[in-house]
């Protein structure tokens, strides 16, 4: 399962990558939200973990860009801000969950990633079945 992590802080990218790779995920990272959109076009990641505020593009904007490339993408946001209004904006724009930095309950974070992965699998299956119906009908 491929996961894309976006955060302008390289050390955070490395740290989250370690956690996810230890759990067996394939992880790509980028500090640049614009590059994230390009990577999305090439790879169609189904799961993205993204910072909420980065230079050049906000978390909400990135969220919309990514979803316009892949409407089924599941995005989990992480924020360094205690202000919840950004978080609410992101959740309203379709983010599946949020965590504040520092992530103090890493087990919970990994659990959410795990559940999201299952959801992505179910959605993917549904799509496959849908396609096979279409094929059968045509």
């Amino acid at each position: 399962m491929n996961i894309l992590i976006v955060d302008d802080e390289e050390e955070i990218l490395k740290m989250l990558k370690r956690h996810l790779e230890l759990e067996g995920y394939d992880v790509s990272t980028t500090p640049d939200p614009f590059e994230a959109v390009e990577l999305m076009k090439e790879n169609l990641f189904n799961m993205v973990v993204s910072d909420i505020r980065m230079p050049g593009m906000s978390g909400v904007e990135l969220l919309r860009e990514l979803r316009s490339v892949n409407p089924l993408v599941n995005i989990i946001i992480i924020t360094g801000y205690s202000n919840m209004s950004y978080v609410v904006d992101c959740l309203a724009s379709g983010a599946v969950d949020y965590f504040t930095k520092p992530i103090r309950d890493m087990d919970l974070f990994l659990q959410v990633i795990g559940e999201t992965q299952k959801r992505v699998e179910r959605w993917t299956n549904a799509m496959e079945i849908g396609k096979s119906y279409e094929k059968a009908a045509s």
Binding site: I12, M15, L16, G80, K101, P102, M106
Partner: peptide, 21 residues
């Protein structure tokens, strides 16, 4: 506070991974 929070985030996250490893 914001400047300190970022490095503190990866310190905290790295401790957790160190613990697991």
């Amino acid at each position: 506070a914001h400047e300190i929070n970022n490095p503190n985030s990866f310190i905290r996250g790295n401790i957790d991974i160190m613990d697991k490893l």
